[in-house]
Design a protein around this nucleic acid. Structure first.
Lengths: 371, 371
DNA sequence: TGTACCTTCGTGCACGAGCACAAATGTATA
DNA sequence: TATACATTTGTGCTCGTGCACGAAGGTACA
């Protein structure tokens, strides 16, 4: 006799206990649904007695907020600012903005007036100027994609004074008090990259690391952390590889040709290249046009150009950090905080996806997941 | 002067064109909303003229189905059968069942009577017996997690005769006509595993591959495909590694001890182990208790036990195939097909996630994504 | 006692799709 | 022409939350 089981589950049916509604809570607490609503949304104008009574009921029963009904009956309005580096199609920040837009669609009846500010992430002066402008804008909340630490700290101070809630995407900034942040753990990211690259190249070889040059001699927050994670891995695991740090200029791209030529015309053997920003495809293309072969490459972010380079075999590993997810949940969290005063989880680290030419075709860019 | 931009987007507001509703379509077509409803749900009882008129309007306007409203106003009932291998907590099939449950929650007002049948995936007779039982059950639809090809083809034939729609999860089966399938591309999966393992071990070394033994001398569909992908990669890339195929018995686990001991007491050097089913942790534990070190391991599926072994460093790479996603979308697709007659995309390949001990902590098992 | 004002609370409508049921129209037959 | 029946169409209620509005109750002061 062979084992086999049949389980009958009448879901949402008899087995599931009756779903409780606002009106049920109201009856139990001996008040009207309006009062329950006021308590649940922290709207005030409720007597101490009524509040206590409702909170007591709320502790006992397991009320599950119905997002479907909310979504159609919401009527509130908010002004929300989004401040990020400039967006170009198919690139990293475009994905974050996509995610933000999708969150707005989920609560389509909430009237959100979005004001988007962008700055040049390679130019500290552009960032300062944009932040200055933002500081004077009237708003209910702001989502910030930070690059320069000190500038962001200043902006946040002014937001704190005005009691305007802010959420970070892409990177958390210390010495600020955001409502939440949605970001990769960049230190671990660098650490993982080091592990991946050293696992596929011989000992005692050179690794060239490219990182973006910025005005004001200030590195992006993310790059600093990734670099730290990278070197810490090598140190911790007693790796014998040598690191060559190469600057990479986005604002003066003609310089890069020079850096690269200098690198590859030196006597050094370079079996591995690591790119800590999302511009890996530029270097991949340089290698291709200059017929340099046999170099292993690990790069960041699933930009259209990087994906193409991965598929062509120019790049070996791409690391993704779910930018759509970051944008989506930053905005969704902000909306639910504003509308429902929903408690917020502050730390939100996103996935680090490892993509190769084999699994890239199956990768879903979150947009696909939601719709 | 530095560039910076401010874009004001009044989303869902003036810039976005007015959202159209069923009633709008009805007015445009000169009928009532009831008639539009009948056309959109293929319920019949509509005159040719009215149908044409409505379809014409539907082509012109971009009606976006509002899941929120649907979700609260649905009232239909369905009997749905789920047939999969047995489920143990924290294991692969449990995740698929989790996904299925979550889909039911999304349409919480639809009365679904779920009937779950499970069989022993290592025992062909158990599968036959369970399928036989299922064939006699009254139902509106069935979701199948297949293992044995021929048995599944037989079951599907009987479903075809009764015009009952079925969707596969985990694996597609040829010579059947499912409504859809949600599965990894197991061939590519094996191919990718081969690439990963050969990239971290020296040439000319041995790779031990473990695959499950089953009654009736029949391999699981998934294993066959993965093995094929694996060997094809080695062949295509002229790899000099030697493959040692090792049987792995789940039903008589005491045999495994013997297989493993025999393997490691042979003179052969085994720097790499590949496990093509989700039981990698068993072998990882054998290595640990027998103090065998320096063996690289790649295994399938993010079971609780495998994740633990990955974190401990026993396993180097885990390959995930989004079981929750598979279950969720299989059920969601089925429901939307039954309720709305929504057109279905047949082929649905899921992501192949590469997990290491560095990025495993950030991995979201889809459950987290949805709620 | 009457008026003004504040706090607290309850009522009722809106949102948009699904679906039951009633109403209207068409067709066939005695 | 009257009746029965089939086909097609329209109407109105339902779901649960958000929120506006107005009612009820309390307090202060003339």
């Amino acid at each position: 006799m062979h084992e086999h089981k049949c389980i009958k589950i009448k879901s949402n049916f008899s087995s599931m206990r009756k779903k409780i509604r606002i009106i049920d809570i109201a009856k139990m607490a001996g008040v009207s649904k309006g009062t329950v609503d006021r308590v649940m949304h922290n709207r005030g104008n409720v007597s101490e007695a009524a509040r206590k009574s409702i909170e007591k009921v709320l502790e006992q029963v397991n009320y599950k907020h119905n997002i479907h009904v909310s979504s159609i009956s919401l009527k509130s309005r908010y002004k929300i600012v989004v401040a990020t580096p400039e967006v170009s199609p198919g690139a990293y920040w475009a994905s974050i903005h996509n995610g933000i837009q999708h969150a707005l669609e989920e609560y389509e009846n909430v009237r959100v007036e979005l004001q988007v500010f962008t700055y040049n992430q390679y130019d500290i002066y552009s960032c300062r100027e944009t932040y200055e402008q933002i500081a004077g804008v009237e708003m209910d909340a702001i989502i910030i994609g930070p690059t320069f630490k000190e500038e962001t700290v200043n902006l946040c101070k002014r937001m704190d004074e005005r009691e305007i809630p802010y959420i970070f995407v892409d990177s958390n900034i210390e010495d600020t008090s955001p409502l939440a942040f949605f970001s990769a753990d960049h230190y671990v990211c660098g650490y993982m990259i080091a592990k991946l690259i050293t696992s596929i190249i011989p000992d005692h070889t050179n690794i060239a690391i490219f990182q973006a040059v910025r005005t004001g001699d200030r590195s992006a927050n993310t790059t600093i952390l990734r670099k730290k994670g990278f070197t810490d891995y090598l140190e911790k695991n007693k790796c014998t590889n040598l690191i060559l740090s190469i600057p990479f200029s986005v604002m003066e791209p003609e310089d890069n040709e020079m850096y690269l030529t200098r690198l590859f015309h030196s006597q050094k053997d370079i079996p591995a290249i690591v790119v800590l920003n999302s511009r890996g495809n530029f270097i991949a293309n340089y290698l291709e046009t200059n017929l340099i072969e046999g170099v292993k490459m690990i790069c960041m972010d699933l930009t259209t150009a990087n994906i193409e380079a991965l598929k062509k075999g120019q790049i070996d590993y791409l690391i993704g950090q779910e930018p759509e997810y970051q944008g989506f949940y930053a905005m969704k969290t902000m909306l639910e905080y504003l509308i429902f005063k929903k408690p917020v989880q502050k730390q939100n680290y996103v996935q680090l996806d490892i993509l190769t030419r084999e699994n890239i075709d199956f990768y879903k860019s979150f947009n696909n997941i939601m719709y």
